[in-house]
């Protein structure tokens, strides 16, 4: 998915660059002083309308795919509690006591079944980003102190997943991670 977005971006960027180059060259070639518009701030209505419609379609397609609506109608097969702290993740099948955060040594989750992560933070804001075995983000949410965020996901690919913190949380932010396996 990420590569598809990169490709989309590169194509659009190339088109825009090309337009600017062509326009620049056309101006370089032009020798007639009188050509060109007196006031270019005119008659952009069609251009705006097309842009508006394109963005509208893009919004209509993407909004229903927002993570808040994912699997909302189903019941999770497995619940994992997550407490993030500077600079660790505690994960447990049972609720985590914030005064004494203790988690499981290993977390195993079923493939192709709904898993619910109940993510909170014990101190500052943290990120909870799940990386696939091939090191691509598959899902993420934030861990905010005082709140619980519920992230639901079905893992298709079995293997070892890594969780990285994606909200800057201090000195050891870059080493804050944990893993779980999907079978």
């Amino acid at each position: 998915m990420q590569y598809a977005l990169l490709l989309l971006f590169l194509v659009l960027a190339a088109v825009i660059a090309l337009v600017f180059i062509i326009v620049y060259l056309s101006s370089k070639k032009s020798d007639d002083e009188l050509k060109g518009m007196a006031n270019p701030l005119q008659k952009r209505f069609w251009f705006l309308l097309i842009l508006f419609v394109c963005l509208g379609i893009f919004a209509l397609i993407t909004i229903p795919r927002s993570p808040y609506y994912l699997f909302a109608k189903e019941q999770p097969a497995k619940v994992v509690h997550v407490a993030a702290g500077q600079f660790f993740f505690t994960m447990s099948y049972k609720a985590i006591n914030p005064d004494k955060p203790e988690g499981e040594m290993t977390i195993e989750l079923p493939a192709n079944q709904l898993v619910e992560f109940r993510v909170t933070s014990l101190d500052v804001n943290h990120g909870f980003a799940i990386y696939s075995p091939s090191k691509q983000i598959v899902a993420q949410t934030q861990a905010m102190p005082g709140y619980v965020n519920l992230l639901r996901w079905k893992f298709e690919e079995p293997g070892t997943y890594t969780v990285h913190c994606l909200e800057y949380c201090g000195m050891a932010h870059q080493v804050m991670q944990t893993t779980f396996t999907v079978k």
Partner: peptide, 11 residues
């Protein structure tokens, strides 16, 4: 009550 306590046994 402790926040964690309330979270036990969910699901």
């Amino acid at each position: 009550p402790a926040a964690g306590w309330q979270e036990t046994n969910i699901n």
